[in-house]
Computed example of a mutant assay.
Amino acid sequence: METIRILLVEDDPPTRRRLHEALASDPGFDVASVDNIADARAAIAADPPKVLVTDLELPDGHGTALTAEVRANHPGIEVLVISVLCDERNVVAAIAAGASGYIVKDALPEDIGDTVRQVLQGHSPLSAAIARYILRRLQPDTPRVQEGNAQLGLTRREIDILWGIAKGLTYNEIADGLGISRKTVPNYIKSIYRKLEVNSRGEAVFEALTRNLIQL
């Protein structure tokens, strides 16, 4: 039987240990763990895994950006995101970026391995809550879809910064890339969040992708 290489990206040590042990308990899995995006990129470049299991809120960026990057550069890698319950927007943002499904952080050990195998079999494991959320977002007659992109009032600069957020860039990297002051970036981001009616990077990326404001 072929051994399935899995790369786990989780910055919380207890959660990382628990998920690693749950995955490693399957004799068919070969598991490596890192705690940030930079180390994940290095590990993927050195020896691409079959499955990437990544948290979303990471110390050096967002798992949504890592997901989009992996899907663009390594289409053979399946991506699962690690989520907490009631985090539909962030999970859907990751799915929009290319993730195949998600693992709940407090899932039972046997369920974690089963979820990985479901993805490898071509399935997309989603909770009922997330499935309902996706359906609501796709309804053509919802007011938020009807309002259209033009009515959001995002400026060209805000779109550029939104793209930087989606790519997981730091404030300094966004500022340097656009030739603006680093101190102004948080103000732009606050304006973006207000116009998109969101409260986090993941939510902003999801809204931007579903409204075709940016492409990753």
Rank of each mutant, 00 (worst) to 15 (best):
V116F: 09
D111E: 14
S127V: 02
Q121I: 01
G113L: 01
L135C: 04
P109I: 14
S127I: 01
Y102L: 07
V119L: 03
G101Q: 04
I103R: 05
D111H: 05
A107Q: 14
I103H: 05
L120V: 00
V119I: 06
V119M: 03
D106Y: 14
R132H: 15
Y133P: 01
E110A: 10
Q121D: 15
I103D: 03
I130N: 08
A128K: 15
Y102V: 04
G113C: 07
I130Q: 10
E110F: 10
I112D: 03
H123W: 09
L120E: 07
V104M: 05
E110H: 14
D114K: 06
P125M: 01
S100H: 08
Y133A: 06
V119H: 06
G101W: 05
Q118C: 07
E110W: 11
L126C: 04
S100I: 00
V116K: 07
P125A: 02
A128Q: 11
A129E: 14
V104C: 02
Y133D: 06
G122A: 10
L135S: 12
S100G: 09
R136K: 12
Y133N: 03
Y133T: 04
S100F: 02
G122N: 10
R132E: 13
I103P: 00
L126M: 04
K105D: 07
D106S: 14
R137D: 12
Q118R: 15
V104S: 05
L135K: 13
I103G: 00
E110L: 06
G101K: 04
R132V: 09
A128T: 10
D111V: 10
Y102H: 13
S100T: 03
R132M: 03
S127C: 06
D106G: 04
L120K: 06
A131L: 11
L135P: 05
